[in-house]
Each structure stands twice: as C-alpha cells, then as structure tokens.
Design a binder for these strands. Structure first.
Length: 464
DNA sequence: GCAACTGTTGCTTA
DNA sequence: CTAAGCAACAGTTG
C-alpha cells in the first residue's frame, strides 16, 4: 500500500544492504515490469548503487555512470534480500549483489516495476516530470491556485492527484481531511486558502508521524521481511467505518469518492453547501414512510425520490427520451403509459437498464439541487426505494436501512386490509445484501411489537 | 463458489 | 482540454 511514508521507510530499510554494492548480475523474470527494453535494462549490470532518494511515492536508485533506476511499488510491490537463488513466483526482477545477496523486486499484483533513465534527464523524461511538490515544499497559496484549476473534482481526489501534491494516497488523504475537518466531497474550487493551510499542516504532521513509525502495515505491506510499521495504530479514518469518530463520537461514514473507498466523519467534516443528510432506504412497506414522518417531526426536510421520478415523468423532454428508450407506446396523449412501462420493464432487462441510466442522473441532480436549497444549517432526509445502484449512494452522511420480516409485513398489510401477495412480490428483487453493506444502521421493524418511532428515538441522540 | 473488495497509476473514452 | 472509468493482477473476505 505504499504511500509516501511507506516508500520512505522502504528506502531507509534498503540502505544497509544495497548502498555501494555492485550489481553483478540481473535476472528479469517479467519484462512487462521493466523499462525501457530488456537489452537496455541489462546495462545496469556492473554498475554500483551510489545513493538512494525518493520523490513522492517513487524510489530512486542512483547508479554509477549516471544511470538512474526509478522504482514504483504501486499496490503491493516489495523488495527482498534473498541469500540464495530460491526465488518465489512473484520475484519479478532480481539483482545479484557483490555482497552475495539477491536483491528482489517482488510484486504479487505485478503492477509496479523498475525503469532505467539517465541522470541528465530522469527528472524530465520519467513520470517524475509530472510530479507535484510534496506537502513540505508548497505554500498554501500555490496549493490553492492548483485546486482552483481542478474545479469540480472532489478535494480528496485532488490531493491524491500526484501532479497536485506528491505523496498522499487513499489512506493519508482520508487522515489528512479528517484532521483538517474538510468533507472529502467538497469541490476543489471551493477550498479556501485557510483550508489549504490546514491541509498542508495536517498532511505534513501525519506523514512525519507515519515516517517516524515506519509506515502503516495494512494487509501484505511490510517495510522489511518480518517487520511491521506501526502507523496503522494511529489511523483514525481509514478502516474505521461505522466506528465512533475519535474526536466527536459520531459514527464514521464510508462512501466512494473518485472511485476510492472513503471514510470520514460527517460531523467533523461538514459540507459547506449541503445539510447533514440521512439516506433512508428499505423495501416497500417496510416502514420507510413512518420513519420519514418521524424525521419530519424532528425538523428534517424531506426529499422523496419516488416523487421526483413522478415529477420528471410530467416533463416533455423527459417523456420524449423515455419514448426513445422504451418505444412509442410508453407515452400516450402526452402522459406516461404506466401499464405499458411496467410490463416492458418487467420483461426487458436491457430496457430497464437503459431507462435507469437515463433517469438516475436526473434524479441525483434534482436531489443535489434540493439539498443545496435546504442549505448547510438544516438537516435533510432523502427517501429512496432502492439505494444500491441508484447513484445516490455517496451523497448522504448516514444511511438508514429499514427492514422487516415477511411475516410482519404481511401482518401490517392484513391489519390495513391490503392485498399482501402483490406488494410482497414487488420486494422480491430488493437488494438486501447490497443495502446492508451501505448501511450505517439497520432498523428492524417488528411491528406490532414495538413502534418504529421508538427505535428511531433511540438513535436521534446521535444527530443533535 | 462466486462476487466484491483492495494500497496506484495511466490509458481510453466521452 | 478535462474527467471519469477501467485495466493491469492476484489474493482475501463475505
């Protein structure tokens, strides 16, 4: 998982057995992991390792005759010193050293590797050319102007962009933003100079601490064989989904930002434009509406995605597109033909996908618009039938899932004199497994034993 | 047993 | 041009 501190730790761990050693022989077991050509790469044979350095997450080996090897560990790259030629199948590149050790680049996922450059151009001809400054070397004003250019990119993705700031990966980006009290989804252009200062102060502090502790040992990463880093014990965001925030006690929320798993504290890291937002989901007749009413009575502004969809279906341009996707019969006399649409979606999986691909982004856009209108000082609750795959998974701060057993659903329906079978059939595709994975809290509706409001009341102390 | 998830980057596509 | 999505790969987890 090497980010800047892990690479620095690896660099320091290599010094003892690598510095001043001559490369007596080279074995390349997987050509994809070296650059440029095999023939050129083999020219490191006979050279001596004169010094080691690091830039961002890149490790740099300076060799004699002005040759420079640039290494990147990507996800799981490691270096081992082996005492004999007993290599494992993930040793991709091996150098026999003059001290008798075999210096091995080992990479289970085969993403990383070594590239050969020349001292005169390695800073401009290699990936290092595009590398930004490390947090210690940049002023808040310069970071601010780089972020302005990233516009709508989420701040987390922006500080992980190695051309903006070198060294932060998924773990330390989460840690930095938690410490700096900035929501990872905040748009880069909305980050102030003062917030840039906090990002720099906290990232420097955290990276320094991590280097001090030998990096974080997560899964397979070890700075040396049999040696663990200790920083994993000082991580407060990464890997702490649904645990209490160490600063305020609110449950840490996990979402996806820029395609990466992201854990943050919704209370410490508040968005500037949006309210604290609960996403409420659950099968039909599980008790969602009761829960929504409960939160409304507590002053929450409600947004109902079903309602938004209904409203979209009254718009001319939407109906036109729906017609294009489902066929002419989908709309008659300027109104959606519900019967036809229901049947069409039931039998044509592909059409359903297409319609969702068109509709969901519109719903998301509308939800965000309404949340922005509600503003950061209020609280909001977004009700959505099916959360997984809706595109709304990452807009909330707390995902509440309401579930109830089939028996209790039937009982509720019976008491209300409604036909049970038809409604329950609608729920058979409800993605419970995925919903559970997204949940901050699952509330089981066991009506009539206990009113759902009572259970929710027990939760509300969190949101005050 | 299959599907989803994982620390990174860069290339393809929109 | 930017920005998102996915591929590169293999092991682990539910």
């Amino acid at each position: 998982m090497p980010e800047l501190p892990e690479v620095e730790t690896v660099k320091n761990a290599l010094v003892g057995l690598l510095l001043n050693q001559t490369i007596e022989d080279v074995f390349v077991f997987r050509e994809k992991n070296i650059k440029p050509s095999l023939k050129e790469f083999l020219s490191i044979k006979g050279e001596r390792v004169s010094s080691l350095s690091r830039k961002g997450k890149y490790l740099i080996f300076h060799l004699t005759n002005d040759k420079v090897l640039i290494g990147h560990l990507r996800m799981e790259g490691k270096f081992f010193f082996r005492e004999s030629e007993e290599f494992d199948k993930f040793d991709l590149i091996v150098m026999k050293l003059s001290n008798g050790f075999y210096f091995c680049y080992n990479d289970v996922r085969k993403f990383g590797g070594l590239s050969l450059y020349h001292e005169s151009d390695y800073l401009t001809a290699s990936p290092l050319a595009k590398l930004g400054k490390e947090p210690w070397d940049i002023e808040k004003e310069e970071l601010h102007s780089l972020l302005q250019a990233k516009k709508k990119t989420p701040i987390k993705a922006a500080i992980m962009d190695q051309s903006v700031l070198a060294g932060l990966g998924n773990i330390y980006a989460d840690e930095t933003l938690l410490a700096a009290k900035i929501d990872p989804r905040e748009e880069a252009k909305d980050i102030t100079v003062e917030e840039c200062e906090r990002i720099l102060i906290e990232s420097r502090r955290i990276l320094e601490e991590a280097i001090e502790l030998g990096g974080s040992t997560i899964k397979s990463y070890h700075p040396q064989k049999g040696v663990d880093g200790m920083m994993q014990n000082r991580l407060y965001a990464y890997g702490h989904k649904n645990e209490d925030c160490p600063r305020c006690g609110f449950p840490m929320h996990r979402i996806e930002v820029g395609g990466r798993g992201t854990t943050y504290c919704p209370r410490c890291q508040k968005r500037k434009k949006y309210p604290f937002t609960i996403l409420l989901t659950g099968p039909i007749h599980s008790g969602k509406s009761t829960a929504a009413s409960f939160f409304a009575s507590k002053g929450y502004s409600l947004i109902d995605c079903d309602q938004i969809v209904k409203e979209l279906y009254t718009k001319k341009d939407v109906l036109k597109s729906v017609k294009g996707i489902l066929g002419k019969k989908a709309v008659s006399k300027g109104v959606l033909n519900k019967q036809f649409v229901r049947e069409k979606l039931g039998k044509d999986r592909n059409a359903k996908k297409k319609l969702e691909a068109y509709l969901y982004p519109l719903v998301k856009q509308e939800v965000l618009k309404r949340l922005e209108a509600i503003g950061p000082k209020q609280k909001a609750l977004v009700e959505v039938q099916i959360l997984p795959g809706s595109g709304l998974e990452d807009i909330g701060d707390y995902n509440l899932v309401i579930l109830s057993s089939k028996e209790s659903q039937k009982e509720r329906l019976r008491l209300e004199g409604k036909p049970a079978e038809a409604l329950l059939a609608l729920n058979k595709d409800w993605p419970e497994r995925k919903a559970r994975l997204l949940s901050s809290q699952i509330v089981f509706n066991t009506y009539p034993e206990k009113e759902i409001s009572e259970k929710l009341e027990e939760l509300t102390y969190l949101f005050d």
